[in-house]
Design a protein around this nucleic acid. Sequence first.
RNA 1: UGGGCGAUCGUCUAAUGGUAGGACAAUGCCCUUUGGAGGCAUUUGUCCAGGUUCGAAUCCUGGUCGCCCAGCCA
Length: 566
Amino acid sequence: MTDANPETQAVPSNFLREIIAEDVRIKKYGDAVIQTRFPPEPNGYLHIGHAKAICIDFGLADEFGGKTNLRFDDTNPEKEEQEYVDSIMEDVRWLGFDWERLCYASDYFPQLYEWALQLVKAGKAYVDDLSADEIRQHRGTLTEPGKDSPYRNRSVEENLDLFTRMKQGEFPDGSRVLRARIDMASPNLNMRDPVMYRILHASHQRTCDQWCIYPMYDYAHGQSDSLERVTHSMCTLEFTDHQPLYRWYIEQLGIFPTQQIEFDRLNITYTMLSKRKLLQLVQERRVNGWDDPRMPTLCGIRRRGFTPEAIRTFVAASGVSRTNGFTDIEMLEHFQRDDLNHRARRAMAVLRPLKLVIDNYPAGQEEFVEVANNPEDSSAGTRQVPFSGTIYIEQDDFREVPPPKYYRLSPGKEVRLRNAYFVTAQSVVKDEAGNIVEVHCTYDPASRGGNSPDGRKVKSTMHWVSAAHAISAEIRLYGNLFAKADPYDLAENQDVLDNLNPNSVEILTSAKLEPSLANAKLEDRYQFERVGYFCLDPDSTPGSLVFNRTLALKDSWAKLEKKTGA
RNA sequence: UGGGCGAUCGUCUAAUGGUAGGACAAUGCCCUUUGGAGGCAUUUGUCCAGGUUCGAAUCCUGGUCGCCCAGCCA
């Protein structure tokens, strides 16, 4: 590897880029620019798997100076809604992309109908009166060829008449379909006279009641690509078997030959990316809506505090190929932490408070200590944080009987309160049940700011919040939505939703935060020092704040503890 | 079992007949006013068996394993 460019070194090339680069090099499309499209069906919210497709469709076109259309694949009025159209546009923009043209497959319904007529006239399509059930039976199986429908050899005149009347609404739903006449014995099931049009007396979200016949995906997609002069139509692997049909329609019609190229879907451990199942989670209220911070939807992870930059970096780093694997969710988390580490303002927040009383701190005194807003970024400045003789520390940060390698507070041990003073634990106060409710300590006034003039070292630095100045907040901690790395690792008779993690959210109601957090805005990103990355949740009201934990900080002590404890 | 697609560290991904490399994870050390971050180092890999070749992850043959397809969904 002699590539000196760090960008291209960090993100290796892939087969899609190479195909496009070659097509550009040989001027396969003459002077036309590279044209791609992102073609979601508006039947659900976009998720992180779509983010990969978006980055590929928009990103690759961008790279070669091309253009990308956003096209809604709205050929099934029974499942599609305007709500989804709106959310998809919002999510694509949020991810950082903008489209050249906003298109709808439904815009092409008239053209598609004309082309269907053309195929009928050419003897390449026919109206079939078989029921859905009968069509299935005639289709054959994976190992046996199909059988011709008795209606397969109708005259062109009769087909024309019937198809026209289908369009005019003379027949009930399901009574007839228009099929392509290809080959009922093809080893590729998609070529066994696929249905082109079905009768659906359903109101479409855009064309309303203009149509009662709707084209199937296969009959609409390739031609839509062609009409938009899409040069490279990237889609996921499960459409590989559709490619012969995709090309068949284009060839029969003699229209612009878009090339379809398939790539692998994104799979992430502990994550399920099935639109149908995600919808079920929402409908059955197993989660609190599409934007529940545990959801892998773009609106969900956005609410959770993930950033578009990190998602794009993750997608680029996880690569694209034609194998189907599982990417570790740790990789996503790594790139998100890395992004937030550089940009998130630091603050101090105690999630599970334990009162610490400084016995030798002058009664009634309070003062402000100066704290860096982001040690990774000096331009973020500093702020003043109030300190006093009674503060809260994390319950985890005190142990009456410290285990080996425990560096935090314990009786007789001295630690640093971040940016404030050294303190030494002296005694504990317990309730009747024996729980520690208060720790008493002494401080060294000479260590103000967090350093002792005598050069004394401490093993640990802890975050804190002054009790008198603290604000309260609800904190929501999120874990993986699924308990298994592969949610589809199922026992007999199990459903994927049986693998839901029962403890995917934990709500803390007694957290104490430094007062500056009262001014937090929805788009702000914070690192609560030593704890994790957090953002304000829209459920917040001025008097009662709610923070979501985007991700915990890596915790090598927790790891050590787990290892030695186990 | 018909057809299609695929198989490289634990995971994801490069190497396009010429030194198997990177990222994540893991491990150890250093550093640290976040047990965070950072730095350094280390471990682990070409599905199997043959063949072609001076030389094979790459080409050929045969296996094995995995994924997709029998919607009037996309």
